[in-house]
């Protein structure tokens, strides 16, 4: 693993508090994920790729913004790995790198509609604000 990748990995582990080595490769996170079909990289792949230091593809994938942050994977993971927190950490690194958040908190109300689940609103705040 290159030094740069290793630094990135350490940073992600620090931000998220996730220890990817606890993963036993059961795939329950991806089995439970409601946004699975929308994602290029799936929750279990985030865990494995961060562990392997293969992080650049994650920083550039749309999957970062497809994750609903519903935390089903966190709830169901039998080993307590908490993949969603890792996805969030990658997202944070990506947005910091681009120098800004995608959306301001003030922009959110305009995008709300009646059918939007409350959880998604909360997720949006988690996702798009600091």
């Amino acid at each position: 693993m290159s030094q740069q990748n290793n630094n990135l990995k350490e940073e992600l582990i620090r931000i998220s508090g996730v220890n990817p080595k606890k993963c036993m490769r059961c795939g329950k996170c991806s089995a439970t994920c409601p946004a699975y079909e929308e994602m290029e990289y799936h929750p279990h792949e985030f865990v494995v790729m961060v562990e392997n230091g293969n992080i650049e593809p994650l920083l550039n994938t749309e999957s970062l913004y497809r994750c609903l942050t519903c935390f089903a994977c966190v709830e169901r993971c039998p080993r307590g790995v908490e993949p969603a927190k890792l996805v969030e950490a990658v997202r944070l690194v990506a947005t910091r790198r681009q120098g800004a958040n995608h959306m301001k908190a003030d922009d959110v109300p305009a995008k709300l509609d009646e059918d939007l689940p409350q959880q998604a609103i909360v997720s949006a705040f988690r996702k798009y604000t600091k």
């Binding site: 059961c26 795939g27 991806s30 089995a31 799936h42």
Partner: peptide, 11 residues
């Protein structure tokens, strides 16, 4: 039943 197929990388 919704599950993971890790070999095929699909849900």
């Amino acid at each position: 039943v919704q599950g993971s197929d890790l070999i095929m990388d699909e849900q």
